[in-house]
Simulated scan of single mutants.
Amino acid sequence: MLVGIVARRGNKRASFLAVEIRDHLREANAAVWLDEATAAEHDETGHPVEEMTACDLVVSIGGDGTFLFTARGVGDTPILGVNLGEVGFLNAVGPNEAVHEVMEELRALRNDELMVREAPRLVARGDDWESQSAANEVVLQGPQRGHGGGADLEIRVNGSLFSSGRADGVLVATPTGSTAYNLSEGGPLVHPGMDAIIVNEMCAEEGMPPLAVSLDSELTVRLSGAENGYVVSDGRAARTLSLPAMVTVTTADEPVRIAGPEVDFFEALNKLD
Rank of each mutant, 00 (worst) to 15 (best):
L109K: 13
G142L: 05
E41S: 10
A196C: 06
M194W: 06
M115G: 04
R239E: 01
P48S: 14
V247M: 08
T220G: 05
D127T: 13
A28S: 12
R72Q: 09
P210E: 08
T251C: 15
I198S: 02
V199H: 00
T248M: 12
L25H: 05
P244F: 11
S60F: 04
E185T: 15
N96T: 09
N83K: 06
L90E: 00
R9E: 01
V256N: 03
E50R: 15
L223W: 04
S164G: 07
V99M: 11
V3Y: 04
S163P: 06
A238H: 08
D253S: 15
I21P: 00
E51T: 10
L211R: 06
I5H: 12
A124D: 03
L140N: 00
G73F: 10
T174N: 03
V139G: 00
L171H: 08
V59L: 09
W129A: 01
A119R: 13
L17E: 01
G159M: 14
P188A: 05
L80Y: 02
D128T: 13
N111A: 10
G187Y: 00
Q144L: 13
E97T: 13
Q144H: 09
T45W: 09
N83H: 03
A54M: 13
D195P: 00
G186F: 13
L243K: 02
L84A: 05
V231D: 00
V99L: 03
S60W: 02
V59H: 03
R117E: 03
H147S: 14
G235T: 12
R72C: 05
